[in-house]
Design a binder for these strands. Structure first.
Lengths: 130, 130
DNA sequence: TTTACTACCTTGCAAAACAAAGTAGTAAAA
DNA sequence: TTTTACTACTTTGTTTTGCAAGGTAGTAAA
């Protein structure tokens, strides 16, 4: 278990949000998305992306159309559906809440002894084994 | 599939970070943590929390000591270990990176046509079924 | 006609949140 | 004393999801 693991865990939950954000500024196909996310420090591989795009499509948040490529097979260009835009607005709110939550916790906003029962600084019964 | 699901997904990845953040300001036992997180809009139940605390303990990020309670069974008060503090600092950095990433994406920082191959607005081959 | 490349898709695995059920000890009520 | 309620900690099974790895197929250059 290393820190990278925890970091990627933090990124995980944001993947869906980031993809919707990205598609907000225009259609894109898998490689566009992977490249853009990589530039933004979100590491994604196609084995992760394709199932996610399929799910978002199935849920009606995305649509796509095939486009010929000058060099290689045709590409699926995904774009936000109207439902996807609404969804994204909800996630914008969720993101705001999340940043607020973290800010709160950073400012030690915790009510330190709401039940008047905190003597944990005493060192009896110390246990650090296992 | 509803928006709440996506929202909770966003929160999920942050749970570990929030708990470490919370413990930074002092020891706490399960109920303290659940209550504090609830106040900060992070919904957690004990079936989620206990395994997570055990894992963090096992990884050496937390220590605990038993405390008698005036009303009920004794409690495990968890606190950050020195390793936990270092870990938390790394996650602070990760959090910064994450907020930066989202900001970037929000500002449509995507290079819209890096390979000069974007005509996806044309509507041939429209596909929106299942 | 091969070989390389690109794009899309699928499968199996591991991690983790969560619900739900379980254990055990304390204290108040009967 | 015995029962009941409460609190705290633990465990089990399910579901979701990211991801590695492998697979298919079509295009184009060698």
């Amino acid at each position: 278990m290393n820190v990278e693991n925890s970091k990627s865990q933090m990124r995980k939950g944001m993947l869906e949000y980031c993809i919707l954000l990205l598609l907000k500024s225009g259609p894109a196909y898998s490689n566009d998305i992977i490249r853009s996310l990589k530039e933004a420090n979100m590491i994604v591989v196609d084995g992760t992306l394709y199932p996610l795009l399929s799910r978002l499509k199935k849920d009606g948040l995305l649509g796509y159309n095939w486009e010929e490529s000058t060099q290689g097979p045709p590409r699926k260009y995904y774009r936000l559906s109207p439902a996807g835009r609404e969804w994204l607005e909800s996630l914008d709110v969720a993101w705001e809440e999340l940043t607020q939550t973290v800010s709160m916790l950073k400012e030690s906003h915790r009510r330190a002894d709401a039940d008047g029962n905190r003597e944990a600084e005493t060192d009896n019964n110390e246990q650090n084994n296992q």
